[in-house]
Amino acid sequence: MPNVEQAIDTSGWVDDYSDMLYNFALTRVNDHELAKDLVQDTFVSALKGIDKFQGKSTVKTWLFSILKRKVIDHWRKQESRKTKPMSSLGTDSETGEQKVIERQNKGAVSEIEVDYENKELRTAIMGCIQDLPEKWKGIVIDKLVEERKSEEVCKEHDITPSNLWVIIHRAKIQLKNCLQQKWFDS
């Protein structure tokens, strides 16, 4: 009996898709080796589950959906390893409120120059995004880094539009404090 499912040619997948998958992963995990591993795992899972791919979507969409799940799994693991409360918020219980006041004098976010060539700045920003709570990270990257449409972001993360702006606002306050600390303390 011939197989109903069409045989899918997977031989060109790595050449065709690995760079875009890698870029997506790198923006989200901010680590070359880790991003590379996630891309590799994505291909492994895809080939293992190839019979589940019924051509309902494009190969690209399907690979991205696998990678997105892997990124979220990584964030969850990362989150469960966090021992400290969000120190960048200045709510550190050991040091108390004083730290917040101390921090305010160091420098303002408005003094940081927007410079796409500045690698240190990129590292600082990506580091601060990594420190965000897992549930906010994807939303912030989709909306603020990649500037995707709000409806799309809401749909993907299953949130309401008003919820989106509340999350963006809280996340940006944390990013602001984190950036000021990272930038002016070093």
Binding site: V114, R122, I125, M126
Partner: peptide, 21 residues
Amino acid sequence: DSTHLNELIKVGDTSQSTMKL
């Protein structure tokens, strides 16, 4: 700050520099 922060956050976009394996 918010407007400036949005500009700063965009610096984090790796696709601007299209990194490759």
